[in-house]
Amino acid sequence: MANEVLKVEHLEKYYQKKHVLHDINFSISKGEVITLLGPSGSGKSTLIRCLNGLEDFRNGEITFENKKVVPSEKNWQQLRQKIGMVFQSYDLFPNLTVLDNIMLGPTKVQKRNVDEVKKEVDELLKKVDLLDYKDAYPRQLSGGQKQRIAIVRALALHPEFMLFDEVTASLDPEMVRGVLNIIQDLADQDDMTMIIVTHEMNFAQQIADRVLFLKDGSILEDTPGKKFFKDPTTDQAKEFLQSMDF
C-alpha cells in the first residue's frame, strides 16, 4: 500500500516464559484511526508499547513508512520523534513547568528554533484551553489538565502518528470528555493517524475507522469500526461488547 504508515508482521512477545502476544499482523494507513479493544490483560498496552520500542519483542517485524525497523535503542530514539505516545498516568516531568515539559522535545531533541516552537506551543495550548497554565508546575494541575498537556507535549514533536494508551482510565468522569474531544479533533481536523487503546466504548465507536479486537494476546478480529459494533464476527467479541453494556 502506498500510504501505509506502519506494518506489523508476525510479532511475538514473551515475558520470561509467558507468551503474551501471538503472531500479531496488521497495518495502518495514513489518516486511519484504529482502536484496540479487548478485555483487560489481553495485551493491548503491551502491543502499543512494542510499537515505539518501550518493550522489546522476540520475533516479527515492524515496518515504519516502508522502512524496516532495526530494533536498536538508537533507532528507536530517532523514530520516537515521529511516533507520539500518551500514557494512562500522564507522566509529566514534575521538575519542569508546563511550557518546559512541552518545549523539551522540540528544542533539545529536534533542535528547532526556540521562538518558533514557543509560538507554536502557545497555539496548541490555546486549543486545549490551558494557555494560562503555561508557567505552572504539573502538581498544580488537575488530572484532566495534565493529560491534555501530555497530549500537547507529544504533538509538539510533529509526530506522523500517535499512540494513546488508556489515556482516560485514571481520570475523574467529568474530565474524560475534554481529553476525548482533543483526540476527536485530531482525527477530524488534522487527519492524524492513531492507534487508541481505550475502555470508552462510545468514543471508540465514534472515532474508529477500524477495530482490532485482542484476546489472550491474539488479534481475533480486524474489522471496520461500524461493523464491529453492530455485528462482530467472533463470539468472544460479542461477549466482550455485552460485558461492556454495549
Binding site: R80, F87, F93, L104, G105, K108, V109, A154
Partner: peptide
C-alpha cells in the same frame, strides 16, 4: 519512559529528567 517517548537520548534523559 515518557522521556523516551518524546525521543530524548540517553544523555538528554539523564540531563533533563
Amino acid at each position: 519512559e515518557s522521556g523516551k517517548a518524546i525521543g530524548l537520548s540517553n544523555w538528554q534523559l539523564a540531563r533533563y529528567v
